[in-house]
Each structure stands twice: as C-alpha cells, then as structure tokens.
Write a protein that binds this DNA or RNA. Sequence first.
DNA 1: TTTGCCAGTTGATCTGGGTCAGAATGTCGC
DNA 2: GCGACATTCTGACCCAGATCAACTGGCAAA
Lengths: 237, 237
Amino acid sequence: MNLAELKSVCGACGIRELCLPAGLSDEEVHLLDQHVAHRQSVRKGDYLYRMGDPFRSLFAVSHGFFKTVLVHEDGRGQVTGFQMMGELLGLEAIHSERQVCDAIALEDSAVCTISFEQFEELGHLMGNLQHRFNQDLSREIAREHSLMMLLGTMRSEERLSVFLLDLARRHERRHQSGDAFVLRMTREDIGSYLGIKLETVSRLLSRLHDEGVLDVHGRHIRILDRQALAHRGQDSA
Amino acid sequence: MNLAELKSVCGACGIRELCLPAGLSDEEVHLLDQHVAHRQSVRKGDYLYRMGDPFRSLFAVSHGFFKTVLVHEDGRGQVTGFQMMGELLGLEAIHSERQVCDAIALEDSAVCTISFEQFEELGHLMGNLQHRFNQDLSREIAREHSLMMLLGTMRSEERLSVFLLDLARRHERRHQSGDAFVLRMTREDIGSYLGIKLETVSRLLSRLHDEGVLDVHGRHIRILDRQALAHRGQDSA
DNA sequence: TTTGCCAGTTGATCTGGGTCAGAATGTCGC
DNA sequence: GCGACATTCTGACCCAGATCAACTGGCAAA
C-alpha cells in the first residue's frame, strides 16, 4: 500500500456508505480523509478505551465487533451496545473530558481514529458533515429510546427476538446474510444487554430451536422463520 | 413588554445558564436570540408534538414540565424522559423527518421554539454553539446509558431511589429545594419510566415513608434521609 | 493425552414484582 | 358544595424469570 492509498482511506473504503462519510461528496470525503483518519487494530479481548481514559477521539469500526460496557461503582456492569463495522464509538463521551464506559473488541478488529477536535473544525468547514453527525447522534438517542422500551416493557422472549432481528437487519445492511450468522458475544453479554440472565438466554434459544424458529449450534444462528420470530412474546404466552 | 425585550429572550432569561445559551458570550446569545427563538405556551395535558408530526424545530422548556412517551405499534407505551426548564425536546427526531415520540405537558408550560434548519446555520457561524450542542446530544446519550443500567440491573427500590435523587439534583440546579418538591407526574408515569408497575411505585413510596426515609403526601415529597435513600436496593434486601 | 477451564445447557426451587380486586382519596367541572 | 371520574393505596394470589446446582463439550496449555 502506497502513500496515496493511505491518504485516501475513506474514499476507497468498502463500507463508506455505512460510516461517517455516508452522503458526502467525493471532495468532502477526500477532505475528511486527508485531515483526520488513520487506522488502528485491536485484538480480541482488548480494550479500545476504558472508563476514565481521556476523551480525544471518536472511533469508527473498520472491521470486527465491539461491545460497550457501563460499569457501576459497585462493580455491576451493563452492556450498552454492540458495534459492527461502520458504526461509531465514543459518542457518549463528547460531553465529558473522559470516557464514560469501556469498549472491548469481541474479535480481532480495526478502527479508524478521528481526533474530535479536528472533527469539529472540519464540521465547521463542511456543514454537510456536521449535519450528518447531528443525525448520527440523534439516531443513537432514538436507538436507546427503543432499548428503553425493550427493557421497560417487553418479556424476555420478545427481547431476544428483537435482538436477533436487529442483528439480522444490521448484517443485511452490510451485505451479509441476515438469516445465518455467528454471534460474537457470549450468552452472558446478550443477557446483560437485554436485562436478563444468561441461563434465560440459553433456555430461550433452546426453546426457539425446538420450536423450529431457529437453528442454534453454539454461536451459529440460522433464522428459519422470521415471521414467527417477529411475533414472539408480544401476543403468545 | 416591548419589541426590544421580545428580541432578547435568551439574554434576559433566568435559566440561560441551564439552557442552550450556556457558556456562550453575550454577543453570541444575542445572535441566537435575534434569529431563532420565540415562545409558545402549552397547556397541561396538551401535546407539544406527536409521533409522526413533521420535525422542524427543537424546543427548550422555558417553564413547566413535560414527559416524552414512545408508543409501540401494539399500543404499549414507555415514558422515555421527563423534561424540566432549560432542557431540550426533540433531539431524538433530528435523524428523521418526523417526530418519533410524543411530548406532553404535565403542567401549564412554555417552550422556546428553534427552527432546526436555522439552528444548524447558526451553528455553522458559531463554532461555540455547535460545540455546546454536540455536548448536549452526547450528554443525552450518556443519560440514557445510565437509564439502561437502571432498567437492566437494578431492583425496583433502587430504581425509585435513583429517580428521586435525580429529581432532587435537577431541582437544586434550578435553585429549588431538592429536599421538598412536588411530583408532576402520576405513579403510572413513574412506573413506566422505571420499568415497574404503578402499584409497585405506590408500595415502595409507602414503605420508604413508613421507614422514615421520605415524607409522602400524595405528590408532595420530602426527602428526610438522603444517605438512606442513596443506599436503598443495592445492598439491603 | 491429560488436565483445567470457560461457555453453555438443563433441572429444581424460590421470589420479586406482576396481576386482580376493592376501598380510599383527590381533583375538577358545574 | 356536590357529583363524577381519575388517581392512589392496600391486600391476596400468581408466575416469569432469578437463583442454585449439576453436568457437558470444546479448546488450550502442559
């Protein structure tokens, strides 16, 4: 890879339309490229950042898979999200000088790092970029509203169904099969995210398997009946 | 009130430092004032906006009290937040053309309306304003992470305690007593927000009253023992 | 190959909070 | 002030999911 290629990371990136540059013109992407992005790899199990680290940059997942965990002072933790390629990490820390949660790679991954200071300057030059970014932040707020609804009103089977369908949708956006995919996280991570215990996750997966809605082999999932999955929990016992 | 006063709403506003203009210079506030804000009153029980309404403006609560409710297609609803004076409404809709939840006044209230299109232009002129706004959005994301933690890991007594202490803190920021205040919302609203049933809210309030932690008379609350309240649920049975 | 260790599954039992019901209290329009 | 309706409180019972526990399988280090 030569210097020119390094200088045009975003422009040549396969997931450009899933990531920050979505909707920007070639020229704008070029500007974004030149000033603010470089790559960094993160090994499975490693922390991209930890609560309390100084906040300087946003990260875009280039490839791989992350989870973010909010750790309470008494040691209890809650998984607040899973991030796939094209998604941003660090949005929740902008208001602070410090990271407010942990970000951990669930497989060998890479991120594009964007100095937030430079990013704000760039947003100032490029109204379009700033507009997209406002939308990204807002979308994250709306996503979390939905999650609050999930945690506040749904029964456990519905929570898991919603989770699996969300994963399917996100895989499809990335031109990967939404019907068959591999879970990158443990049953415990899923449970934490959904506000249920890992045993319950396991039991629910077994049940959906037995009922022919899913094929479950460890972390390999195949969705056999999306309709059935979509209706789980909300009406049926 | 004459025209000059009307033209300088934010500059003269008592809650200026709690609201969007926080941290801006007098000149910047003047610019914000002149271009984009005017007031609108909302009666108790009225909708400020409904899901599906076109999104054009942000709202800042000038005085009064609101709740936002996310309504699921099957009719189930979840209260996603309560907004006091100085707080912004509509952030979750920026990414869309439409409002994604309902905003309802819980008492006679007033809001300052800010065209989002004009606001983005203004942010472009005023990096400082844009920076503050990024922080506001980020703070909202972090707030919702905490709420996910609450909904995902806490027992009901701890949820209610956290809720009351949060209300107390927000009253104090507004130079109102954090020890004695009036709840503007029903037990059902509180329960919806906290992911528990109204009967449980009622029982918990009665228990905290009996144990001398709170004084509860209908919606009038007095916190008698903050320490006890802060430790509820996490260790004790 | 053995050993140890997670991650996951499954069963038995328990319990916090949900559900249902009814009484008490507030609040608002007239 | 009075009637009507909404909100809150309290009790009795129930159940979804937590907890506790035993077991299985896969994989990595020795």
